Simulated scan of single mutants.
Amino acid sequence: MPHFYFDVRAGTEVLSDPDGFELDSLEGAEQEATQTALALGRDWLPRTREVCVEVRDEWRHLRLILSVALRVKRLD
């Protein structure tokens, strides 16, 4: 089973995943990254405008970047 790492970026903050875990496929890793980004976004988006989850494979090659962003457009 493939091994994936999920590193998180929020503003200038970077949290590296030291252990990662096994999932069936890259599609499964994408689903996991989506859930992670949404959960973190609830807490972090008021402080930063974007949360990114970088998915890396077992060789630490970047395979996917998933972003959740908060955009504010003020109208006069």
Score class of each variant (00 low, 15 high):
M1I: 06
Y5E: 04
Y5I: 04
D7N: 07
D7M: 05
V8W: 09
R9M: 12
A10C: 04
V14H: 12
S16F: 15
D17T: 01
P18H: 08
G20D: 05
F21G: 06
L23K: 02
L23E: 01
L23W: 00
L23G: 00
E27F: 12
E27A: 15
E27C: 08
G28K: 02
A29T: 10
A29F: 05
E30F: 07
E30K: 07
Q31E: 14
E32M: 08
T34R: 10
Q35D: 14
Q35E: 09
A37K: 00
L40E: 12
L40V: 09
L40T: 09
G41M: 06
W44P: 02
L45A: 06
L45G: 01
P46E: 06
E50V: 04
E50Y: 02
E50G: 05
V51E: 01
V51K: 04
V53F: 02
V53T: 05
V53H: 02
V55H: 07
V55N: 04
D57G: 09
W59C: 09
H61T: 12
L62G: 11
L64S: 03
L66G: 05
S67P: 03
L70G: 10
L70D: 15
L70F: 13
V72Q: 06
V72T: 11
K73Q: 15
K73R: 15
D76R: 11
D76P: 14
